[in-house]
Every structure is written in structure tokens, then in C-alpha cells.
Design a protein around this nucleic acid. Structure first.
Length: 432
DNA sequence: TCTGGGGTCCTAGGACCC
DNA sequence: TCTGGGGTCCTAGGACCC
């Protein structure tokens, strides 16, 4: 006897989940006057480095050569007619803004949730009198985006955001015959959600969770929906409960209520181009990354009160590394932040080759009045603040490379290389 | 042929306070 | 003094997503 849900009390909205087919690769195709579905382009994080990986590939490249997101550079067939392209994040951001502008013609701000650079949720429940049925709206948006940007978007439609997202990922994306639109409702859960396989394809289930589930006898989403909820809760906590409801297609979030909270952390992650064995070299990298992050803080008038330092050791080392955090006085000053990071670094660093560095700021808050300290004179603080702002200004105007600290020019410095990156990828513009 | 980068959320243990 | 209890914050680590 199958355990079914009573959906009568669940929210029923008209949700669209929209994403751009092979976004980065498609943008690059359009820039080259090619049809995005006929191009053979792979956007690669570090084309000149075998360690790089594919961030996006044209549909044809996926189909013909099996080259998809995550494929390593050295796994791309050598003789394939694939154009390898460096990412231009600034360009993609621009296109994203154009697309969001189109969305805003159809929904109010609070009914739009931009989930990532190429994926958004729209609640069109209140848009029908002006724009027609949900399907009409979906097609209209597809048409406008095609007309304006020559990009193909796929649309999942559902009674809630989860169903829309699942319809998108598991049906719309592959269904050209249906114009890349798919619709999943509560009544379809058995024929749709339950058939998603493998389990790790399901949103929120990764390989670890999949294994864990299998160990307790759950081998499909359908199994999951029939599992004992209290047992799931005991094994997985809140996540277990969530998984259970998701397997029934239940998701109670309302877009209009999920005002996107301000990002609570900024992080910088860097895999170094070689193992760093000298302590001071690592220190220089940490300083650079801290400064870049601190610039972001100041640009948005924010402060941090928590710094985290993560160090990953070379692959040749058994130990993985460490990650430690430290509460500091609320600040946006590079000096104060670096001071905190250096405490962590000196406390935990061992003479082991380093390959990965992570610098994260937490407890981010809007900046109030100048923070005064009992231990430092007003003048010193003001001076430092002025200095930081001036540096930011110069960098914003002339590019990060225009004002490198002397230390960055030492052998360990990566700022010169990283300045050309945006969101970790090449910005593709002079001063993005 | 060795490492992409930026995020969020949850857990569990410990410290500290009342 | 006994093993009290609840609440909140901090920390490290894990898992997942795009």
C-alpha cells in the first residue's frame, strides 16, 4: 500500500523556474554570431592549465563528445572540433541583468527570485490577467529573450518552487519537442518525482547522502517517500524531514516571503598554482585575499566581525589542512582583518606544503557610524580609513593592478594574476 | 597529467551564563 | 554538594548547490 500525501493544504502557486541553456557557452556562441544550439564551444576555467575544468559546454559538445560541466581539460578529446574559450564573467553578468529586466516585465520584484547567474524563479500567480496562462507567460518570456539576446531558455512549471525546479532539471531541459517547457503538479508526483534516478540527481541529495540512504535500505525517491519519517528524522535530523517532504513534491516556501537575506559571508578560495613551502609566501597570499575581500566590504559599506582562515595542504600530505575562525571587532579595515588572520595563521601554521587557501569573512553587517576603539586614538583610525578608501578608489578607477602592495610583487604574490579574475574566472574586461 | 571559485545550511560539542 | 537544566554563542566540520 503506497503512502500518499494529502495535498489539499499545500500552497498552490504558478511558479516558473527558468534557466538559460548552457549559459556561458551560449553567450560565447552569440558573440561569435553562432546559433547557441549549433555551436561547439566549451568555456574552460583555465584553458592553459590541465587542471582547469569545463564550466559550460554547448549542447552539441555534450552530445557528441560527452564533454560536460566539470570535465577536466585533459579529458577533452584532442581532435574534436571544440572551440575552447576563456570565461568572461563580466559579460555573462551583463546578459543576466538583461534577462532579469525581461522577467520584471511580468512579475513584481517580490515575486522574482534570482537564484544564480543563469537561473531564476518567478511566481506568476498574479500575472494572469495581464499576460495570460502560465504557459503563455513561459512562451512569451522565451520569445523575448530569444529576440533580444538570441539565448534559449528552458522553463519548469510547478505548484511550488521545488516542483518547478525538478520539472526544469529532469524534463524541460531535455525536451526540445515541447519547446523546453515542462509542467509538474502535485497530482503527477508518482509519475515524475518518484522516477528521478539516480537519487543523487535529486536536488539536495549528493553522493554522500545517497550512500547513507542506501545503507538504510532506501534506493529510490519512491522508497524515500515511503520511509518512516521518524526514522529519517533520527538519522538525518532536519535534513531527513526535508528530504521526505521533497520526495512527495512538497515545498512550502513562498517566493514573496523569502526576501533574499543579505549575504552573510564573503569568501575567497584559491588553489595555488604550485605547493607553497615558504611560510612568508603563504602569508602574502592570505594578505592579498583578505584585501580583495575587504575591498568588497567597503564598496558595499559593510563590516565583518568574524574572520576564517582555511589552509589545505598539498595532495602529497596525509592531513587535509585546517580551518579556524576568530571573532574580531566589527570592522572593514584591511589592517584589522589581516591582523586577525595572521593570529590564526601563526597559531596553526606548520611547515607543510600548502596548496589551497581560503579566507572568509562572516558576521557581515551594514556599516554604522565609525567604530571607535578604546585602545586606539581617533586619529589613527580615521587615517587608516581614509587610506583604505583611497586605495579602493584608485583600484576601482584604474584596476586592481594599479596599486599593488610591494609585498605582492614578491615571488609568492598572486594578485597580479588574480586581478584579471571576476568571481574566480577571467572577467574579460579591463576593469571589471 | 592532480586540485575552480563562491556561497548556504546543518550538526555536535564546548563554554558560559542564569 | 549532588549531577540541575535551559538558553545562547562559538567553533570545526560536513554536505550540497550553481
Amino acid at each position: 500500500m503506497l503512502q500518499m500525501m494529502d495535498y489539499s493544504q499545500e500552497p498552490v502557486r504558478d511558479i516558473l523556474c527558468i534557466d538559460v541553456k548552457s549559459f556561458f557557452a551560449s553567450v560565447e556562441a552569440v558573440e561569435r554570431k553562432q546559433h547557441p544550439l549549433e555551436a561547439k564551444i566549451a568555456v574552460v576555467s583555465k584553458p592553459d592549465n590541465n587542471g582547469g575544468l569545463v564550466l559550460a559546454s554547448s549542447p552539441l559538445v555534450k552530445k557528441l563528445y560527452g564533454v560536460r560541466t566539470g570535465t577536466r581539460v585533459f579529458d577533452i578529446p584532442k581532435n574534436a572540433a571544440i572551440e575552447i574559450v576563456e570565461p568572461r564573467m563580466a559579460l555573462y553578468l551583463e546578459k543576466n541583468l538583461d534577462i532579469v529586466t525581461i522577467f520584471k516585465q511580468f512579475v513584481a520584484e517580490e515575486d522574482l527570485h534570482v537564484y544564480s547567474i543563469d537561473e531564476s524563479f518567478l511566481d506568476v500567480t498574479h500575472s494572469h490577467s495581464l499576460f495570460g496562462t502560465t504557459q503563455d507567460i513561459a512562451r512569451h518570456i522565451q520569445y523575448l529573450i530569444w529576440k533580444k539576446l538570441k539565448l534559449v531558455v528552458t522553463v519548469g512549471i510547478g505548484d511550488n518552487p521545488l516542483l518547478a525546479k525538478l520539472a526544469l532539471d529532469h524534463q524541460a531541459k531535455h525536451n526540445k519537442e515541447a519547446n523546453f517547457i515542462a509542467e509538474w503538479h502535485y497530482k503527477d508526483v508518482q509519475e515524475t518525482v518518484w522516477r528521478i534516478a539516480p537519487m543523487s540527481d535529486f536536488w539536495g541529495i549528493g553522493s554522500k547522502t545517497e550512500h547513507h540512504l542506501q545503507r538504510i535500505g532506501i534506493h529510490s525517491i519512491r522508497d524515500l517517500s515511503q520511509a518512516d519519517l521518524s526514522k529519517l528524522k533520527k538519522k538525518f535530523g532536519i535534513i531527513g524531514e526535508q528530504l521526505f517532504f521533497h520526495s512527495h513534491g512538497i515545498d512550502r516556501t513562498l517566493l514573496s516571503e523569502t526576501f533574499v537575506p543579505k549575504a552573510m559571508s564573503f569568501s575567497k578560495n584559491q588553489i595555488l598554482n604550485r605547493d607553497y613551502t615558504e611560510k612568508h609566501e603563504v602569508e602574502i597570499v592570505i594578505r592579498e585575499m583578505a584585501e580583495e575581500n575587504a575591498m568588497r566590504l567597503r564598496k558595499h559599506h559593510l563590516t565583518t566581525a568574524l574572520v576564517k582562515l582555511g589552509i589545505g595542504y598539498s595532495r602529497h600530505i596525509d592531513e587535509g589542512g585546517f580551518s579556524h575562525q576568530l571573532m574580531i571587532e566589527k570592522t572593514d579595515s584591511s589592517h584589522k582583518i589581516i591582523e586577525g588572520l595572521m593570529i590564526l595563521f601563526n597559531r596553526h601554521y606548520q611547515a607543510i606544503p600548502v596548496r589551497v587557501v581560503n579566507v572568509t569573512f562572516g558576521k557581515i553587517e551594514p556599516k554604522s557610524a565609525l567604530q571607535l576603539s578604546l585602545f586606539e586614538s581617533h586619529d589613527v583610525l580615521i587615517h587608516r580609513e581614509d587610506l583604505d578608501q583611497t586605495i579602493d578608489l584608485i583600484r576601482r578607477k584604474h584596476g586592481y593592478t594599479s596599486l599593488l602592495h610591494a609585498s605582492s610583487l614578491a615571488s609568492g604574490g598572486m594578485a597580479l594574476q588574480r586581478a584579471k579574475l571576476l568571481g574566480g574566472h577571467r572577467a574579460g574586461k579591463d576593469d571589471a
